[in-house]
Computed example of a mutant assay.
Amino acid sequence: MPFLIQAFFTALATLLPSLVSKVLVGLGFGYVTYELGSFGIDYIFNLIVTNAATLPIEVIAVFNYAKLDQAIGFML
Score class of each variant (00 low, 15 high):
residue 43 Y to Q: 09
residue 63 F to Q: 03
residue 50 T to C: 06
residue 49 V to R: 14
residue 23 V to I: 11
residue 17 P to N: 04
residue 72 I to T: 07
residue 10 T to R: 11
residue 6 Q to E: 09
residue 37 G to H: 09
residue 24 L to S: 08
residue 68 L to S: 01
residue 58 E to Y: 06
residue 43 Y to K: 08
residue 34 Y to W: 06
residue 32 V to C: 11
residue 33 T to N: 10
residue 7 A to L: 09
residue 39 F to N: 12
residue 38 S to E: 07
residue 72 I to W: 10
residue 39 F to P: 00
residue 35 E to C: 06
residue 74 F to P: 00
residue 6 Q to V: 05
residue 11 A to T: 00
residue 28 G to V: 05
residue 24 L to P: 01
residue 41 I to G: 11
residue 9 F to E: 11
residue 68 L to R: 01
residue 44 I to H: 11
residue 67 K to L: 12
residue 70 Q to D: 05
residue 56 P to R: 03
residue 39 F to L: 12
residue 61 A to P: 00
residue 53 A to T: 01
residue 6 Q to D: 06
residue 23 V to M: 04
residue 52 A to H: 00
residue 67 K to R: 15
residue 20 V to C: 10
residue 67 K to Q: 15
residue 36 L to R: 09
residue 11 A to C: 04
residue 54 T to S: 12
residue 16 L to A: 15
residue 18 S to C: 07
residue 24 L to G: 02
residue 51 N to K: 01
residue 49 V to H: 12
residue 49 V to E: 12
residue 58 E to V: 05
residue 34 Y to A: 03
residue 48 I to R: 00
residue 17 P to E: 11
residue 4 L to N: 04
residue 14 T to M: 05
residue 13 A to E: 09
residue 1 M to Y: 11
residue 63 F to G: 03
residue 35 E to H: 09
residue 2 P to F: 08
residue 16 L to R: 08
residue 4 L to F: 09
residue 40 G to L: 01
residue 63 F to I: 01
residue 14 T to N: 02
residue 34 Y to C: 03
residue 21 S to P: 02
residue 66 A to Q: 13
residue 53 A to Q: 02
residue 59 V to A: 13
residue 68 L to P: 00
residue 3 F to A: 15
residue 16 L to V: 10
residue 12 L to Y: 12
residue 20 V to W: 07
residue 26 G to L: 04
residue 37 G to I: 02
residue 5 I to D: 02
residue 54 T to Y: 02
residue 21 S to G: 06
residue 18 S to D: 08
residue 2 P to Y: 12
residue 57 I to K: 14
residue 3 F to N: 10
residue 2 P to N: 14
residue 8 F to H: 12
residue 28 G to C: 10
residue 29 F to W: 06
residue 63 F to C: 05
residue 2 P to C: 12
residue 19 L to R: 02
residue 22 K to S: 13
residue 9 F to M: 14
residue 74 F to H: 03
residue 75 M to G: 09
residue 33 T to E: 06
residue 15 L to K: 05
residue 74 F to I: 04
residue 2 P to V: 13
residue 6 Q to T: 07
residue 15 L to Y: 05
residue 12 L to V: 10
residue 7 A to S: 07
residue 15 L to Q: 07
residue 69 D to L: 13
residue 6 Q to N: 08
residue 2 P to A: 14
residue 65 Y to K: 11
residue 13 A to G: 13
residue 38 S to Y: 08
residue 11 A to D: 04
residue 39 F to D: 11
residue 31 Y to F: 13
residue 15 L to I: 07
residue 36 L to C: 02
residue 53 A to D: 00
residue 71 A to W: 15
residue 3 F to R: 12
residue 64 N to Q: 14
residue 63 F to Y: 04
residue 38 S to T: 04
residue 27 L to Q: 07
residue 35 E to A: 09
residue 28 G to T: 08
residue 22 K to Q: 14
residue 72 I to D: 02
residue 10 T to P: 00
residue 41 I to T: 15
residue 11 A to G: 10
residue 21 S to E: 13
residue 68 L to Q: 01
residue 5 I to R: 01
residue 36 L to N: 06
residue 47 L to A: 09
residue 72 I to M: 15
residue 76 L to Y: 00
residue 76 L to K: 04
residue 21 S to Y: 08
residue 6 Q to R: 05
residue 1 M to P: 06
residue 61 A to T: 04
